[in-house]
């Protein structure tokens, strides 16, 4: 095996893992801090993508369209939390089913509003060369974006008052209430944040994954397998699981077939759950 091929495979697999992580972080935050699996996560990604797309079509530069997408998805997320999730607190499977209902409703709404035909915005035509091989620059940029997103969420959770409250609400709910933290408001904030992160992902990935009503399905399955494999220490766990599963699948696909990559992903997920029935971070003492 030539060295330059190996290097490109590793680099592009890391980029694949980063894309998975970007798509996953919002889900991980909501799961980690609220114990809720948001099956509509993929549709928030889609909403983010469509918002950014609509904004760019209206003449807003792509970079500015990203915060707009975040704001829109956060707002919709907050409304959904207040109307639905709030009433189902502690009923994890009911929440899953309700968010699944939301997901198919959003999907069909997107079909109604945007139709099935919407133009993509294209990837920046910039690539780097390693030996004989080209790599798309924008995909590689995702490695940094994933790292930035991860650090942002980590700092938000450990260094801000909101983060302290959010973690207190999940770890010591009774104590949190006793010292006056309104957990329902914190939850609204957390869910909204999770949706905002999904919106960010949808917008930043728009050049790679064109906006279509069904784009959510493609991501959400792997994203939520990643979160579940990650276990209770969601952020660090998701990063490790995304790199292991996403990167591993990508490397497998590079040397074998793409189908083998997918099978690798699902099989390793099953094996990890067998070995770590509560997720890979179940025994850890870290908190984020």
């Amino acid at each position: 095996m030539e060295f330059d091929y190996l290097a490109t495979v590793l680099l592009s697999s890391l980029a694949s893992a980063s894309i998975l992580l970007i798509a996953t972080i919002g889900l991980a935050v909501v799961f980690g801090l609220m114990g809720v699996i948001n099956l509509a996560h993929g549709e928030f990604l889609m909403i983010g993508a469509y918002t950014a797309l609509t904004a760019t079509q209206a003449g807003v530069p792509f970079l500015l369209s990203i915060p707009i997408a975040v704001a829109v998805t956060m707002a919709i997320g907050a409304v959904i939390e207040i109307l639905v999730i709030n009433r189902l607190y502690g009923r994890i499977f009911d929440t899953m089913l309700a968010t699944w209902g939301i997901s198919i409703a959003f999907y069909q709404l997107a079909v109604l509003i945007f139709g099935t035909v919407t133009p993509g915005i294209g990837m920046p035509q910039y690539s780097i060369k390693i030996g004989d091989y080209n790599l798309a620059g924008y995909s590689l940029l995702m490695i940094f974006v994933a790292a930035l997103m991860g650090s942002f969420v980590y700092l938000l959770m450990t260094r801000t008052v909101y983060g302290m409250k959010a973690r207190a609400s999940i770890q010591e709910p009774a104590m949190a209430r006793a010292i006056g933290i309104e957990s329902s408001r914190v939850n609204t904030m957390t869910f909204s944040l999770g949706c905002g992160l999904a919106g960010f992902a949808g917008a930043i990935l728009l050049p790679i994954v064109p906006a279509t009503p069904s784009m959510g399905f493609a991501f959400v399955i792997k994203a939520f397998l990643t979160v579940v494999v990650a276990g209770p220490v969601t952020l660090t766990g998701s990063a490790i699981a995304a790199i292991g599963l996403g990167g591993g699948a990508s490397i497998t696909a590079s040397f074998l077939t793409s189908v083998a990559g997918d099978v690798f992903f699902f099989l390793i997920t099953a094996v990890l759950l067998w070995l770590f029935p509560l997720g890979i971070t179940a025994g850890w003492r870290r908190k984020m």
């Binding site: 994890i92 939520f224 699902f266 997920t269 067998w274 029935p277 509560l278």
Partner: peptide, 22 residues
């Protein structure tokens, strides 16, 4: 394996997805 409830549900889902793929 004494999986947690969420993990059990997800594993059952993975099983279905794997069959669909294969």
């Amino acid at each position: 394996a004494r999986m947690g409830p969420l993990q059990s549900t997800i594993l059952s889902y993975t099983f279905t997805l794997l069959l669909w793929s294969v």
